[in-house]
C-alpha cells in the first residue's frame, strides 16, 4: 500500500472530502556521491565562517536575506514559518476552471490524491463530477511550510493534484527575441512541411521512450567495474540547411522510404 505524505481535506462550498496525498513522480536519474579521486573516500561538505576561517557547527548557522550588497536581515526559523500560512490541513478550492484551458506549462509537480478516512463516498463524487465536467478545482494548500497554488483534476479514476507555477514566474514569449525573415515561408513550403509532419506522425506512447542516457550511464558503471577503459566516441555534426525547399523534398522522400 502506497504511503501518504500528507493527510487533509479538500473543501469546496460546504463539501469536505478527506484525502491523502501520495508521491506521483520520481526522478530515476542515476545519482552519484561526491568522492575524493585519490582514495575514493566520501567528500564531506563542511561549513566555514568566511570571516574567521573556522569551521562552524550547524547550530550556529542562521538564515539571512540579503537586502543590499553584503547587508543581511537575519530570520529565525519560526519567523520564516510565520509566512507559510496557517498550516491547516486543508485544500480550499476557491473555484473550478476548464481543466483543458490550463496550459501544461503551469504544472510544476504532480501528486496523487487517495481517499482519506471515511472519505470514500465524497472522493468518488468529486472525482466523477470533475471527470464529467472536465473541470479542475483551483485552491491553495500548505505543504512543508510553504503555500502552493494547486489544480485538482480527475485522471484515469484517480484524483491528481498539480502544484501550479504563478503567471509572473513564466517568461513571456515577448522576452525572447526572434528575428523575422525578409520573406516568410511560402504556401508550398508550409504544405510540404505539413506533409512531412503527417508522415512522421505517431501515436504518443510514453513506454516507447526509455531513458537511454540512464542505461548508458549504468553500462559505463558496469564496464568500469570490470576495469575496462572508457573511451569517448566523437560524432560529426550536421550542416545547416541552405535550400529549404530542396531539403524538405529530400526529407519527405527519406521519411517515406524509411517506413
Amino acid at each position: 500500500m502506497a504511503r501518504s505524505i500528507w493527510n487533509g481535506t479538500i473543501a469546496f462550498g460546504l463539501m469536505t472530502v478527506p484525502v491523502k496525498l501520495h508521491t506521483a513522480t520520481e526522478s530515476k536519474t542515476v545519482s552519484f556521491r561526491e568522492v575524493h579521486i585519490d582514495d575514493g573516500a566520501h567528500v564531506e561538505h563542511r561549513r566555514f565562517c568566511s570571516k574567521e576561517d573556522k569551521e562552524v557547527p550547524y547550530k550556529e548557522v542562521v538564515k539571512g536575506y540579503e537586502v543590499s550588497d553584503g547587508k543581511f536581515v537575519v530570520l529565525e526559523k519560526d519567523e520564516i514559518a510565520a509566512a507559510a500560512g496557517d498550516g491547516a490541513h486543508r485544500i480550499d478550492v476557491e473555484h473550478f476552471v476548464d481543466a483543458g484551458a490550463i496550459d501544461p506549462i503551469y504544472f510544476a509537480k504532480t501528486y496523487y490524491l487517495g481517499a482519506g478516512d471515511d472519505g470514500g463516498q465524497a472522493y468518488r463524487l468529486l472525482h466523477d463530477a470533475l471527470e464529467k465536467t472536465g473541470r479542475a478545482g483551483i485552491g491553495r494548500f500548505t505543504f512543508h511550510d510553504r503555500e502552493y497554488l494547486t489544480a485538482v483534476r480527475a485522471r484515469d479514476g484517480v484524483l491528481v493534484l498539480h502544484t501550479l507555477r504563478y503567471a509572473d514566474e513564466l517568461v513571456p514569449g515577448s522576452d525572447i527575441e526572434v528575428a523575422t525573415p525578409g520573406r516568410g515561408p511560402g504556401d508550398k513550403e508550409v504544405k510540404m512541411a505539413a506533409r512531412l509532419v503527417d508522415t512522421l506522425h505517431a501515436k504518443f506512447d510514453p513506454t516507447d521512450y526509455d531513458d537511454e542516457y540512464r542505461e548508458a550511464v549504468l553500462s559505463v558503471v558496469e564496464r568500469k567495474r570490470k576495469g575496462e577503459d572508457i573511451v569517448r566516441e566523437e560524432q560529426p555534426e550536421t550542416d545547416d540547411s541552405a535550400d529549404l525547399m530542396a531539403t524538405l523534398e529530400a526529407s519527405l522522400r527519406g521519411a517515406k522510404g524509411g517506413r
Binding site: 567528500v43 561549513r47 566555514f48 565562517c49 570571516k51 548557522v61 542562521v62 543581511f72 520564516i80
Partner: peptide
C-alpha cells in the same frame, strides 16, 4: 521559468558572516 523564490544565505550567527562550504575528504 524565472526563479522568483525568496532565497536565504547561511550566515554565522555570531558575526553575521556568510558561511562557505568546503569539500573535505572524509
Amino acid at each position: 521559468v524565472r526563479d522568483l523564490d525568496v532565497h536565504f544565505r547561511q550566515l554565522h550567527e555570531k558575526d553575521g558572516a556568510p558561511i562557505e562550504t568546503r569539500r573535505f575528504c572524509s
